[in-house]
């Protein structure tokens, strides 16, 4: 136990020291006036969090809502399509082609067409967010749905397992690792999708707050919103990582190396 702790500490301290060193360097550079006005000291950004924290909270709520809704819609769609692809072999090719098409379409190019049809509100944010995170979910799910080992499948067949038992005891455990890794990639992308959609126009949202701060040349506030978005993305990733760990512990499986 002590050894594990020591391992963890020795893995954590070099990046922490590097990060603190960079912060200190930046702080000194700003104090000496080396940096342009657009690069504020880390302490100024931290102060900005204190000063306009209420504003940030006001703007971040719809962003989180749109991200969660987008992720949920994309997950539902991906699960449906991957399910079709897994159960009907001939549909798999077109499903994957569709996924690649969606993935390589420049969002910024399609968004104006969407604006024409659904307007620039919450609906747009949710749709763009869902589009941004769709592809990794599709890949994760369609890999997961066919991850069942042939020998295990035969064993279940020989033991006359019911459909339900197959689903819960065979298909789900072998699919979940892939699905979790899909979600871990998709969550930050959904945040990015929401952000891009909000840049195009919103009443409330971190993206529009960032744009206003940029237009009023309020450098600390721009930095603050960027940090907030990054925290949202890390939070999304972390939530699914924690969920995965909880599941693995509950199922009594080894922790997968990340």
């Amino acid at each position: 136990m002590a050894e594990r702790l020591r391992d963890r500490v020795s893995a954590v301290w070099p990046p922490t020291a590097a990060l603190l060193g960079l912060f200190a360097l930046l702080e000194i550079a700003v104090a000496l006036g080396w940096t342009p006005i657009t690069i504020p000291a880390p302490s100024a950004v931290a102060m900005e969090f204190g000063q306009s924290g209420a504003d940030l909270a006001y703007h971040i709520v719809p962003s989180i809502t749109a991200t969660v809704a987008g992720l949920a819609i994309a997950a539902t769609l991906a699960a449906t399509l991957a399910g079709i692809g897994a159960s009907w072999r001939r549909a798999n090719g077109p499903v994957m082609t569709f996924g690649v098409l969606v993935d390589s379409t420049p969002l910024i190019a399609v968004a104006p067409i969407l604006i024409v049809f659904v307007g620039g509100g919450m609906t747009l944010h949710i749709i763009v967010s869902a589009t941004a995170c769709f592809f990794p979910l599709l890949i994760g799910m369609s890999r997961g749905f066919r991850a069942v080992e042939a020998t295990a499948d035969e064993l279940f067949h020989v033991l006359a397992a019911s459909r339900w038992q197959r689903l819960v005891k065979l298909a789900l455990p072998s699919a979940l690792p892939y699905i979790f890794s899909g979600f871990k990639i998709a969550a930050p992308l959904a945040v990015l999708g929401t952000l891009i959609a909000e840049w195009m126009g919103a009443e409330r949202g971190v993206g529009i707050m960032m744009i206003y701060a940029m237009f009023s040349f309020n450098a600390p506030q721009v930095w603050m919103t960027i940090v907030a978005v990054c925290l949202m993305a890390i939070g999304g990733y972390g939530a699914f990582a924690l969920l995965e760990r909880a599941y693995l512990r509950w199922a009594g499986l080894e922790e997968a190396p990340t």
Binding site: P36, P188, L195, A213, F217, A219, I226, C230
Partner: peptide, 15 residues
């Protein structure tokens, strides 16, 4: 890598 780096675009415009 988990962070959406595209989010810094407004900052790059300022710089």
């Amino acid at each position: 890598r988990t962070v959406p780096v595209l989010a810094v675009a407004p900052l790059l415009i300022m710089i």
